[in-house]
Amino acid sequence: MEIRYSNHPQDVKKYDTEELRHHFLIQSLFVPGELKLVYSHNDRFITGSAVPVKEAIKLEADAKDMGAPFFLARRELGIINIGAKGTVKVDGTAYELDNKDCLYVGLGAEEVLFESADAANPAKFYLNSTPAHKQYPTVKAAQKDANPRHLGSIETSNERTIYQYIHEKGIQSCQLVMGLTQLDPGNMWNTMPCHTHERRMEVYLYFDMPENGVVFHMMGQPTETRHIIMRNQEAVISPSWSIHSGVGTAAYTFIWGMAGENQAFDDMDGVPMTEIR
């Protein structure tokens, strides 16, 4: 498991392109036959992926990294499948996940196994995990079961639908909040006007992008913005002090996961367009 440490915004002001990418960009996810995990010291958030092919993949990490007898001994987990049909087995109970289906796995589950229905067209399980203090039941939700919120307009190139899966009025959790945002065709901007939320950090996974497409992911304090060029199926860590917005060369989808002080989706500090620099 790769470890990423927290970064002070005054230090980030001095980073060049390679340093920004080294600290915040998560690449090489969704490798066939492998489990990938990145542990961030921002709210102890773990981002990862599992792409089972011929054999099942078990969710596990080095005992020293986890400091626990098994992965979910003191954690909860959110999973969204961005590939073909697959199955997640939680302590022997199987949950089939189609593309964009979500599964929440609560504290205390001892064995989590990932399988693909077709090795030639595997599932791609995207994982978000946070510390947990209470056990909530394992729950599956298809995209049609998520809470949709329609935002933006074609005039501002940000017409999109936010699908909330794990949230206050949906799948219950200790602190993990998770969902996805899908831009309508012809729209390129997300989360602009931008905001920060000092009480929560966030991780974005950009996907459903064309092979030659990119997203310019905006980050940094509102008056000290930077950008990271992102490609299909790459993720980015967004600290609580940073904006998190992006513009692409074509429409795309992204999964957002949050952790921190509370689960209130609208608890954010808006940034007036006149102040961003």
Rank of each mutant, 00 (worst) to 15 (best):
R149V: 00
T138G: 12
T130V: 12
M218E: 04
N128I: 02
H217T: 06
K140M: 06
H167F: 12
V112Q: 12
V139S: 08
S173T: 07
N190W: 06
T196P: 15
Y206W: 08
S173G: 04
S129E: 08
I154G: 14
G213L: 02
L205A: 05
L183E: 05
E202H: 00
P131S: 09
A146H: 14
E155L: 11
I162N: 03
E202V: 01
A146T: 14
T223S: 05
H227A: 04
G179W: 05
V203R: 11
V139H: 11
P185E: 03
A146R: 11
T130C: 13
W189I: 09
Q172Y: 12
I154M: 12
T156G: 02
D145A: 09
M188A: 13
P222H: 08
A119V: 13
N212L: 05
K169Q: 09
A141Y: 12
R199A: 15
Y204N: 01
C194G: 12
K140W: 00
V203M: 10
E202C: 07
F125G: 14
F216I: 07
H197G: 03
N187F: 01
H133S: 06
D145R: 11
H167E: 00
D184Q: 15
P148G: 04
L113G: 11
S173R: 08
L205M: 07
H197R: 06
M178V: 11
K134C: 01
A120H: 14
T138W: 06
H195Q: 00
P137C: 07
S116V: 13
C174G: 11
R226H: 10
G170V: 01
D145C: 10
A141D: 02
Q221P: 15
Y204V: 00
T181W: 10
F216C: 00
T223C: 08
P122G: 09
P137Y: 02
G186E: 02
I171F: 15
S129C: 10
N121V: 10
F207M: 01
E159I: 08
I166L: 09
